[in-house]
């Protein structure tokens, strides 16, 4: 219920913000060639991720190209190696703008693996 309330609250807040600017400003990280066309990804990334996560998690198929880790690899900011650390981080900026809660990063790391390894090397 509280989640619902937060979602609603965020929705209304972002509604007022939307009037001011019509596109989210986001740090796309390294960017470059995505696994699909950007417009398609904007619309369908969640379906791709959800479909592949079940195959990876439950069947151990690790070769699919729609992995969350791959998203992070390209789109984590070049400044802090994260897709969620700041207001304009790749995932956050857009999800804020669209007022959709991201549930991925309560469990998944939003950081580039190489950066995580470097920090946890010792």
């Amino acid at each position: 219920m509280f989640r619902l309330l937060t979602i609603l609250a965020v929705f209304f807040l972002s509604f007022s913000a939307q009037a001011a600017e019509s596109t989210p400003k986001l740090d796309i990280g390294k960017g470059g060639q995505c696994v699909e066309d950007p417009q398609f990804m904007r619309k369908n990334h969640m379906h791709l991720l959800r479909h592949q996560r079940d195959e990876t998690m439950r069947q151990g198929v690790r070769t699919g190209k729609y992995s969350l880790k791959n998203c992070v690899e390209c789109h984590a900011s070049t400044k802090d190696n994260s897709v969620i650390a700041r207001e304009d981080s790749f995932c956050v900026a857009c999800h804020r703008f669209e007022a959709v809660k991201i549930d991925c990063f309560e469990c998944h790391s939003g950081e580039r693996k190489s950066a995580w390894l470097q920090r946890n090397a010792k």
Binding site: E106, C107, H108, S109, R112, W116
Partner: peptide
């Protein structure tokens, strides 16, 4: 408790 800084290969999270 809520967790932070998980291993990118080992997702873990509160409430599970």
């Amino acid at each position: 408790e809520a967790l932070h800084d998980q291993n990118p290969d080992v997702p873990r999270g509160k409430g599970t």
